[in-house]
């Protein structure tokens, strides 16, 4: 049925696997898992800000070491954690920063000369500052991504969601986020079924035009169905007592471990910003 089909189905499949895997890891026993999600989220955001504020490579390394340490004590599967960050990063950021390593973009001390034809005014070489700049950028992106992955892997997503409220995200928005996350799976299931039933009915090649038309009808159907479904959800909420006001029951409790972690992160960040930069 074509590339688009395989790619989309594969995409949906890997997303579902990722979600299930994340769910499992986030419910393991570990250090970060034991913390109050609100404290964890704020602390990790302070770290993220620091990562993006500092200039020196050393600062990034220090924070990354801290992240790895946290991952280990939180029984995050290391192989997955490293792969998730370092496997895809070179493809995107790596390609983007690649030209930086050459002298025509970043002049400076030559590390390795590639082409030198003085007669034609062509000189291509890899420079030390070029490599450093490129690596600095890649590393900054990698550490940022690591932090987010760490937060997601160590927190059940609904706790992560509820903890957004401490970041001044309005409660209504948090409820909408939760409901959206939920209905993504309902829609994905519908999509998967429609893809599979089309696949089973079709043999041989289908033109791109046909595929586009079919995809449009699929999206159109989803649109129409979404209207009906949102109306039904509204009724079912009403039926169970919803009257334009969402009530939640928060059971988070802070203890000394949370405060310790928070102050630890804060001290680390302040010191890095002040003394290492």
């Amino acid at each position: 049925m074509g590339k688009f089909f395989e790619k989309t189905v594969a995409g949906i499949g890997s997303l579902l696997l990722q979600v299930i895997f994340t769910q499992e890891v986030s419910q393991k026993k570990g250090y970060l898992q034991s913390l109050d999600p609100r404290v964890k989220v704020i602390s990790l955001i302070i770290l993220l800000l620091t990562v993006n504020l500092v200039h020196k490579f050393l600062s990034l390394v220090l924070i990354y070491v801290f992240i790895l340490f946290l991952a280990i004590v939180s029984s995050i599967p290391m192989k997955f954690f490293l792969k998730r960050v370092w496997l895809f990063l070179p493809f995107f950021t790596g390609i983007i920063v690649f030209p930086l390593i050459f002298n025509i973009v970043t002049p400076g001390t030559t590390l390795l000369e590639l082409v030198n034809l003085p007669a034609l005014h062509i000189n291509l070489s890899i420079t030390v500052p070029g490599l450093l700049t490129a690596f600095n950028i890649i590393f900054r992106v990698a550490v940022s991504v690591s932090l987010v992955v760490l937060a997601v892997l160590s927190t059940p997503w609904y706790d992560l969601l509820k903890s957004l409220q401490v970041l001044f995200v309005p409660q209504v928005f948090v409820v909408i986020l939760g409901m959206t996350y939920r209905y993504i799976f309902v829609l994905l299931q519908t999509v998967n079924n429609m893809f599979l039933s089309r696949k089973s009915r079709l043999a041989g090649r289908v033109s791109g035009r046909e595929n586009r038309k079919w995809l449009a009808s699929l999206i159109g159907t989803l649109f129409a169905r979404s209207f009906v479904q949102s109306e039904e959800i509204y009724l079912s909420m009403q039926s169970r007592g919803y009257r334009n006001k969402i009530v939640t029951l928060d059971s988070f409790k802070l203890d000394s471990h949370d405060l310790l972690f928070f102050s630890g992160c804060l001290i680390l960040c302040v010191n890095i910003i002040l003394f290492v930069k």
Partner: peptide, 29 residues
């Protein structure tokens, strides 16, 4: 009066089973 909808996906709109079960008593005051 309580209503069990045909499509459980419509009835279950909360992040977890627990949130779902406390929804009605919580909202009914």
């Amino acid at each position: 009066v309580g209503f069990v909808f045909q499509d459980p996906d419509v009835q279950l709109f909360s992040p977890t089973v627990w949130d779902e079960v406390i929804f009605a008593p919580l909202h009914l005051g």
